[in-house]
């Protein structure tokens, strides 16, 4: 079911084109990765979703109806450039932001107690924010983002400033929120975390969307058709059986292991390669190279200059 849609969004800041005809569609319960190099237009798109700025043209829908002002209660936003009042006490501050998100005092307090307990940070309540480390401050900010239990969560670089342990905790919490039914937009430059938690990605480059799809489809689309094969037996026949459709990139033999790397030039299926080489050698392992999101990202952006 489609939960969110931004349709043909254009935005221009006095001569600078920030978004050109961008359309994204997000299913309910999805973790949607919004990727792109710095300055591509991601933050502008996020601000449009948050109604901080309005698009020049294009429309935004949530649950099938146009976005309206009261939808800020349905959205939780953790901006990349984040901060809180340094001299204000942590608890007071969290309460203030919760009230701004429309929670009444009682509910806000109850939920804050729950989250502070869950993160084991109850004794921070009366501390001033500036007494906390950066990672601790980020945790507070995370709580403030999700406290009003929004249906749509937007995380812009949520893991920056966290140590690996806290990153793990946070990842689990994000996936947890998805389990509970939240839809999540996740914007980051950290591609390994994209692979870990995103279902779907869109890549924006120079104000245009240049890639969109399920994470597996995207990776498959950009696979180089290269296979790593470890084998036993005699290599001599291999070039002949492979013929013109394949290129042997590397070939190594030593006392312990024989390896070769083969590129499939016109993209026929994998079993074709297996069937061709199986009669000649004994196959120990057979592995197709699937690109990481990092490689896809670089590949797509560089070839789109």
């Amino acid at each position: 079911m489609e939960f969110f849609k931004a349709e043909n969004i254009n935005k221009n800041f006095s001569g600078f084109q920030a978004l050109t005809d961008v359309t994204i569609s997000i299913e309910k319960g999805q973790v949607f990765g919004l990727l792109g190099p710095n300055g591509a237009g991601k933050t502008t798109l996020i601000r449009i979703i948050n109604q901080i700025t309005a698009p020049d043209t294009g429309r935004v829908f949530i649950e099938g109806r146009p976005l309206r002002a009261s939808d800020i209660y349905n959205i939780g936003y953790l901006p990349e450039e984040r901060g809180l009042y340094k001299k204000m006490k942590v608890g007071e501050q969290a309460l203030y932001l919760a009230r701004l998100k429309g929670l009444d005092r009682h509910t806000a307090l109850k939920r804050l107690k729950y989250w502070f307990k869950r993160f084991e940070i109850q004794d921070w309540w009366d501390k001033k924010l500036m007494e906390l480390s950066k990672g601790m401050q980020q945790k507070i900010q995370f709580i403030c983002t999700i406290l009003h239990e929004p249906k749509l969560l937007i995380f812009d670089e949520p893991f920056s400033g966290f140590d690996p342990i806290n990153t793990q905790i946070l990842k689990e919490e994000i996936l947890n929120l998805r389990e509970k039914g939240a839809t999540i937009i996740f914007s980051t430059h950290n591609m390994s975390s994209v692979e870990e938690i995103c279902d779907h990605i869109a890549l924006i480059h120079k104000s245009k969307k240049i890639l969109d799809g399920n994470i597996f489809d995207v990776k498959n689309q950009y696979k180089p058709n290269i296979f790593d094969v470890v084998y036993k037996g005699n290599f001599t026949d291999i070039p002949r059986v492979l013929g013109n459709a394949y290129e042997i990139i590397t070939h190594n033999e030593n006392d312990r292991v024989n390896e070769m790397t083969i590129k499939h030039l016109n993209g026929a299926n994998n079993s074709d390669l297996l069937m061709k080489i199986a009669p000649s050698v004994e196959i120990v392992s057979f592995n197709e190279r699937i690109p990481s999101m990092n490689e896809v990202f670089i590949n797509v952006v560089e070839n789109h200059a």
Binding site: I52, P79, G83, L97, C144
Partner: peptide
Amino acid sequence: NRIVEVIISS
């Protein structure tokens, strides 16, 4: 402080 973006999303 950059708190402004947090607040104006509310």
